[in-house]
Amino acid sequence: MSNDNEERYLSTIKSIQDSYISKSFPEVVPDNLEILSTIRYDPSLTKNAPASSDQIRKSNFFLFEEHVQRTQFTLQYFQLQFYGNTDLAFEFTADNFFNYLVSAFSQSGKSLAEPYKVRCLFHLNSDLVVELHPTPVRENLLDGILTPSLPETDDLPEFAENKTWDVYIDSKPTLISPFTSFKTTTRSHYSDSRARALPGLRPEAEEVILFNPQNNLMEGSITNVAVKRKSDGKWITPQLSSGCLCGVMRHFLLRKNYLEEETISMDQIEIGSEVLLFNAIMGVVKGRIVGRAS
């Protein structure tokens, strides 16, 4: 190999190391890294809505057990990556997690009659911080998958019940990393995709779908996604090997046989295609591919 070719080769290797490996697989814990879990509190999930914090039940938190399992796995993964073991600095169980959530509501003084997005932030070396944010009422969290396809019209209700989201295709691939597979506060790849693709015409009902360097569908910036398989009309969602988030709503829909996993080439995604968007805050809503990022 000539000196010029060797220098170009080494420069390419260093570029890959700096732009991908060091960024996506850091050797030390980034200062701003927190494990993230967002859970829907909803008084309508129990027969009797809680009137005080001592009446809150685990079932008032949508998919509570799935959140616990995913958070445990995520914490252990990053503990192993950065410290070489799975011994967390604090005890994390379903019961103490639930007690944290109830305590957050008790101390906040917020009305328990409204639904909330409960944002839970974990640092590997300390306990969690809980934030409570209002979120819209949803009469049926599964309506997006249970209702028939919607007509192509703008004359639809103003919020999620029977409303189709505008979905755009990103213009650049997203590299697979632990920060796509697990939910953390390292989210620049999602912010960049949203900045490239979303026009802001319907801020509460826009999403961008991401694809990996193999040109396979991954996920949305705030949702997992599914498309209809043309051969039989079955809803299919990308496999975890695509780099998509191991979302709790995704897990629930697969477990209940609403979805199947499959490798989905972006060649299958067309303008006008109907998609499903889902996460554990808004449940399942319908979307339609309306454009591509320039």
Rank of each mutant, 00 (worst) to 15 (best):
Ala160Gln: 06
Ser177His: 04
Ser171Pro: 01
Met218Cys: 03
Ser44Thr: 15
Pro30Leu: 03
Pro199Lys: 01
Lys117Asn: 14
Cys244Gly: 02
Val137His: 12
Lys110Leu: 15
Phe179Lys: 01
Asp18Ala: 13
Leu276His: 03
Phe97His: 10
Asp155Trp: 09
Asn257Met: 11
Glu261Asn: 05
Val118Glu: 00
Ala49Pro: 06
Asp95Arg: 12
Thr86Tyr: 00
Asp54Phe: 13
Cys246Phe: 11
Asn257Lys: 15
Phe25Thr: 00
Thr135Cys: 09
Leu276Phe: 08
Arg57Ser: 10
Ser103Ala: 09
Asn279Lys: 13
Ser171Asp: 15
Thr186Glu: 09
Ser181Val: 10
Leu142Arg: 02
Phe78Cys: 05
Leu80Trp: 12
Leu88Ala: 08
Lys110Arg: 14
Val137Ala: 05
Ser171Trp: 06
Ser52Leu: 04
Arg57Phe: 04
Glu158Tyr: 13
Leu128Gly: 05
Asn5Lys: 13
Glu262Trp: 01
Asn162Trp: 06
Glu152Ile: 14
Asn216Cys: 12
Asp87Lys: 13
Ser221Glu: 06
Thr174Ser: 03
Lys286Ser: 01
Ala89Leu: 06
Pro173Cys: 07
Leu63Arg: 08
Asp18Tyr: 12
Met266Gln: 09
Met266Glu: 07
Asn216Arg: 08
Ile264Thr: 08
Leu88Gly: 05
Glu27His: 09
Pro173Asn: 05
Phe73Gln: 10
Glu6Gln: 09
Ala226Phe: 12
Glu206His: 10
Asn32Glu: 12
Val68Lys: 10
Glu6Asn: 07
Ala205Val: 02
Val129Leu: 12
Val285Glu: 01
Glu139Arg: 09
Phe211Ser: 00
Gln239Tyr: 08
Asn48Leu: 12
Arg194Lys: 15
Asn85Asp: 15
Glu206Gly: 08
Leu132Met: 05
Phe105Cys: 03
Ile169Ser: 00
Thr38Tyr: 11
Phe122Lys: 03
Phe122Tyr: 15
Pro43Ser: 09
Ile56Asn: 03
Phe97Glu: 05
Leu63Ile: 08
Asp143Asn: 03
Ala293Leu: 01
Pro30Asp: 05
Phe252Glu: 06
Glu34Gly: 04
Lys58Ala: 00
Ser15Leu: 10
His251Trp: 07
Phe179Cys: 02
Pro151Ala: 10
Val118Trp: 01
Val225Lys: 07
Cys120Trp: 04
Asp31Asn: 15
